[in-house]
């Protein structure tokens, strides 16, 4: 993708470059503005919102990190995402395997039921789920986010994994079966290595959605020690709504590492998406 052919660009190509560049710059500018605003004092933000900071105040970032307990938020987000995503992708792969490679009664019905989950918006069960989690004594624990988080991604993941299973021919699995391998062995040793790239894509997609989940996190966890980043950020911005520089600093701390991680992994994220996405 980055192999740039450097013959002279035609006028049309320069035009394309210019227009695309301008649009990208405008859409990306708010992120740049956010970063340098986080180094300004409140007074500067109020008086001259556009200007660069007169003095780069690193202490804003330190204060936000400490006051907001951002370390805990990061840790919780990583933990919840890690567990939920691995659960979801593993189960979904197994389910997709079963739906495409095995014959069992009710297969079609189960798949159709699962598809409900693909289209159902999470708010439609948020309240009932709240009371259910309370009765299970899971509120205010990471499991209140992990289990529903994984469950809600499941339908989507199964749907795409199933499509991927269909797209590859079952020859290898049939050969293994003739060699006397049982279903479990076939799944682990034959299918999983084959669908591995698709699984990675699902990991990326699920990580983005679980990491960013807000509604469940808002309702199911009230304890500071268990909160995840998105809801922590919303709460922080309400809590310090009069201290603009602090909120900018918290925004920067919570987003820039993600952006850097993304730019490092960019090729994989986009390549993964393009390889399997949506077909």
């Amino acid at each position: 993708m980055s192999r740039a052919t450097e013959r002279r660009r035609s006028t049309a190509e320069w035009l394309q470059f210019g227009v695309a560049g301008a649009i990208v710059l405008v859409t990306f500018y708010p992120a740049i503005w956010m970063v340098y605003s986080s180094f300004k004092s409140n007074r500067e933000i109020f008086r001259s919102p556009f200007a660069l900071p007169a003095q780069w105040r690193w202490e804003n970032l330190i204060e936000a990190w400490q006051v907001g307990g951002l370390g805990t938020l990061y840790f919780n987000s990583v933990f919840v995402t890690l567990v939920a995503v691995s659960m979801c992708v593993l189960f979904a792969t197994a389910a997709a395997f079963a739906f495409t490679r095995l014959e069992f009664p009710g297969r079609k019905l189960m798949y159709r039921i699962l598809l409900i989950g693909l289209l159902l918006p999470p708010p439609s069960v948020a309240i009932a789920l709240f009371t259910q989690l309370r009765d299970m004594h899971l509120l205010n624990t990471p499991w209140a986010l992990i289990l529903p988080g994984a469950a809600w991604q499941l339908a989507f993941t199964v749907f795409l994994m199933r499509a991927y299973f269909i797209s590859i021919r079952p020859d290898m699995e049939e050969a293994a079966r003739l060699d006397g391998a049982n279903t479990w062995e076939i799944f682990w040793h034959v299918s999983v290595p084959m669908v591995w790239p698709a699984m990675l894509t699902m990991v990326v997609l699920n990580t983005i959605s679980v990491w960013n989940e807000l509604l469940f996190a808002l309702l199911f966890v009230t304890d500071d020690a268990q909160r995840t980043l998105p809801v922590g950020l919303v709460r922080f911005s309400g809590y310090h709504s009069t201290d603009y520089s602090l909120v900018f600093a918290a925004l920067t701390i919570t987003t820039v590492p993600i952006l850097i991680l993304y730019f490092v992994l960019q090729r994989h994220v986009i390549a993964g998406l393009t390889a399997t996405a949506m077909d």
Binding site: L139, N140, F220
Partner: peptide, 22 residues
């Protein structure tokens, strides 16, 4: 202490705690 800003406290902050198992 479990602290919310005023609006979040009276919107979801307090009620989700009162209804919780903890």
């Amino acid at each position: 202490e479990i602290v919310f800003d005023d609006d979040q406290y009276s919107n979801q902050g307090l009620i989700t705690q009162l209804k919780s198992n903890e």
